[in-house]
Computed example of a mutant assay.
Amino acid sequence: MTQPPAGPPPYGQQPPDGPQPGQVPQAGSPQPGYPPQPDHPQPGMRPQPRKRRTGLIIGAVVAVLVVAAAVAAMVVLTLQGKTPLSSDEQQIESTLREFYGTLTDDGFEAASQLACKADRDEFAAMPDADKAEAEKLAFAVDIKSVDDIVVTGDKAKAKITGTFTFAMPGDSDDESDDSSEENLVKEDGEWRVCSSAGTGT
């Protein structure tokens, strides 16, 4: 008995799932009765490794360390009297130590640049011969403590205790002292050593 040729189903009737008689399943189409298979790596292929966040973690750690170092530096400088957050007493002690350290290491002219404007102007007005003689002086100052700091407005007094030694050119005898009374003034927000402040000028 001859089978009628396969044709489209009657109008309004859906064809059954799966290949129809006489049809060959297309390659890659799911087999009837089996769910779609998930993607798996083909034999012989390595799975892609997961991206690691090591770089992000290291960057965060470095950022934290930088901030911590900056905060620590700010605290140290504040305690040393080298920031606006320092008290007047801390800034005055820091100023005196810097001034006399410069005097010892770099000489009279370099130290004068750290002094108040009146002292700088006085040094600038000195004859060149006097400047040359002053530069020959050998200073050695070792500050043990800065005490008795009294601040009055933009002026201050302080007492330095330590060893003060200086030698005149051609003089074999060194002169020394163990304390010094200092005058300071505040100019442009900074404390400066000012010998002129003690003379009423």
Rank of each mutant, 00 (worst) to 15 (best):
E98M: 07
S87N: 06
T165E: 08
Q3S: 15
S87C: 07
P9I: 14
M126I: 01
K136Q: 02
S195R: 06
L103D: 09
E187Q: 15
D178V: 14
Q90V: 00
P5W: 13
I149E: 02
E135V: 02
D88S: 09
D105F: 13
S172L: 04
P25V: 00
D39E: 11
P38L: 03
A129E: 06
P10F: 13
G101L: 05
D119E: 08
P8S: 12
P8N: 13
P47W: 04
P127Q: 00
G59C: 01
A6G: 11
K155T: 14
Q37H: 01
A73D: 10
D147H: 06
D154Q: 10
D171P: 06
A125V: 08
Y11P: 14
T199Y: 02
A70P: 01
L137R: 08
L137I: 10
P169M: 00
G170C: 02
K136A: 00
V66D: 10
T199A: 08
T161W: 04
K186L: 10
K51D: 12
S195T: 12
A70S: 10
Q14G: 11
A134P: 02
A125G: 08
E181Q: 15
V61C: 04
D88V: 09
P21I: 08
A124C: 07
A156M: 04
A115E: 05
A138Y: 14
A68R: 09
S94W: 09
A63C: 06
F123K: 03
L96G: 03
D128H: 03
G200L: 03
D88A: 11
Q37C: 00
D171G: 06
Q14S: 12
Q48R: 09
E181I: 14
F166I: 01
Y11T: 15
Q91I: 00
I149M: 06
A140H: 11
L85T: 11
K157T: 13
L77V: 07
S180D: 14
A124W: 08
G33S: 04
